[in-house]
């Protein structure tokens, strides 16, 4: 399908370049990892569970959003749909990699996608635009951020155990506070205020009418559809 079938290089040097380039992003990722560890502890997850969660999902926004609907017994449908809703943006990131990664062997392309995130995706595309086409850059930068995220989760969970009661120090407010700061970054990409307003409005109403965590998905669906509808021009 692709007009150009040149197979990009996939080398150790490219992997190393990715590792080095992502060091600027690692502290920010670590901060979110710490916070996730603290919140996972407050939700009653054990240390090994919290670390496995981060190592296996490697998805900060989705993990935090899932904690917001995490109750006992586990609402399986709600946590699954929440994870998909938060990670749906990866469909776009992955699609944008098609022209570059498409000619690669599947054994190189698909494992690389495991560590695909917002930050290293942007770094990798900038690298590609600069003419450096080594595709291992994505895996290298993603691996550094994955390590940072997982290790910080372990530390955060330890800290959460020390703090104890989440009401102390306002720890229960960390989740909303993080979402409020993340909102600013996502807001710029959403194209206008309609998705945010619709999301808040529908969620507040559904929360009053329907028991359980369904208000979150109702709001996400309504808000994202508002974003889709606002785009009237088909071009």
């Amino acid at each position: 399908m692709a007009s150009q079938t040149t197979i990009p290089p996939f080398t150790l040097a490219g992997f190393r370049a990715g590792l080095a380039a992502s060091l600027v992003l690692a502290p920010g990722v670590a901060l979110y990892g710490l916070a996730f560890g603290v919140m996972a502890s407050a939700r009653g997850l054990t240390g090994p569970e919290a670390v496995l969660f981060s190592a296996w999902l490697n998805a900060g926004g989705a993990q935090m959003a899932t904690l917001a609907v995490w109750t006992d017994p586990l609402p399986w449908a709600a946590i699954g749909l929440t994870t998909v809703a938060m990670n749906a943006r990866y469909l776009l990131l992955g699609a944008a990699l098609r022209p570059w990664f498409g000619p690669l062997p599947a054994a190189q392309a698909y494992p690389s996608l495991f560590v695909l995130g917002d930050g290293n995706w942007a770094l990798a595309l900038r690298e590609h635009a600069a003419g450096r086409t080594d595709a291992a850059f994505l895996a290298g930068s993603g691996t550094a951020l994955w390590l940072s995220w997982t290790a910080a989760t372990a530390l955060g969970h330890l800290g959460g155990q020390v703090i104890g009661d989440p009401q102390r120090f306002g720890i229960d407010f960390m989740l909303p506070a993080f979402f409020a700061t993340m909102a600013l970054a996502f807001f710029r990409r959403a194209g206008g205020i309609a998705p945010l307003i619709a999301g808040i409005g529908v969620a507040v109403i559904v929360d009053r009418l329907v028991p359980g965590p369904w208000y979150i998905l109702s709001g996400a669906l309504a808000g994202s559809l508002a974003g889709a509808l606002r785009r009237a021009d088909p071009a």
């Binding site: 993340m182 959403a190 999301g199």
Partner: peptide, 9 residues
């Protein structure tokens, strides 16, 4: 694109 901000809201 609008999904994350809607979900956060």
């Amino acid at each position: 694109r609008a999904m994350p901000i809607a979900l956060i809201g």
